[in-house]
Computed example of a mutant assay.
Amino acid sequence: MLRITQVSEDSDQVCLKVEGRVIGDWVSELDRTCGSCLSQSRHITLDMSDVTYIDRQGVETLKRILGENVRLTGATLLVQALLGRQVVGKIRQGKTIGPGGPPIKAANLTNSRRSQ
């Protein structure tokens, strides 16, 4: 099962918390959710700190959308390993992966969720 929760947003950016396994039909759901935000010209930060597994289709989808104003934060060592060397070099604890923009720390995502 996969849970995607919007933890914060403004007019041009949205932060989504992704939890569970990015596999099978759930990959399409993640792709649709990101596609909807991207079609509104919004930048996306995906907090991946609670993702437990990503299948091949999920890995390919994430690699594809990373170049489309989508950043990752909070990727575990397992997620880093599954995404491969191309992406692992870009991952830093508490920082985002993706083009442009300032890093968003995972702690800030947690704090914004509590304040809602």
Rank of each mutant, 00 (worst) to 15 (best):
C37H: 11
D50L: 09
E60R: 11
L82C: 05
W26E: 10
E29N: 10
C34K: 06
T61V: 10
W26Y: 13
I23M: 13
L77H: 09
Q86S: 11
Q40T: 04
T61G: 05
Q57C: 10
R64E: 13
L30I: 06
G67F: 00
Y53I: 10
L77N: 15
I23D: 02
R56N: 15
D31W: 08
L30R: 03
L62C: 09
R71K: 11
C15G: 12
V22W: 06
H43K: 04
V59D: 03
Y53D: 15
D10R: 11
L72Q: 00
R85W: 06
I44M: 02
K17R: 13
I65V: 13
G24W: 10
C37F: 08
W26G: 06
L77E: 15
Q80Y: 03
E60L: 10
Q80I: 11
E29W: 04
M48I: 10
T45Q: 08
I44Y: 12
T33G: 06
L16V: 07
L46N: 03
N69T: 01
C34V: 15
C37R: 09
D31A: 08
R42A: 01
N69D: 11
L77T: 13
V51Y: 05
L82F: 02
R71E: 02
V87C: 00
D47A: 06
I65N: 05
R21N: 14
I23K: 09
L66W: 04
K63Y: 07
E29T: 08
D12L: 12
V87D: 01
R85M: 13
S11A: 15
L78H: 08
T73C: 06
V14H: 00
V51A: 00
L16K: 04
I23S: 07
L78N: 14
L77G: 14
E9W: 04
S39L: 09
R64Y: 10
L82W: 02
E60K: 13
D25T: 08
D31E: 14
L30Y: 06
K17Q: 14
R85S: 15
V22C: 02
S36E: 14
G74D: 05
K63H: 04
R64N: 12
T45C: 07
E19L: 02
G84V: 03
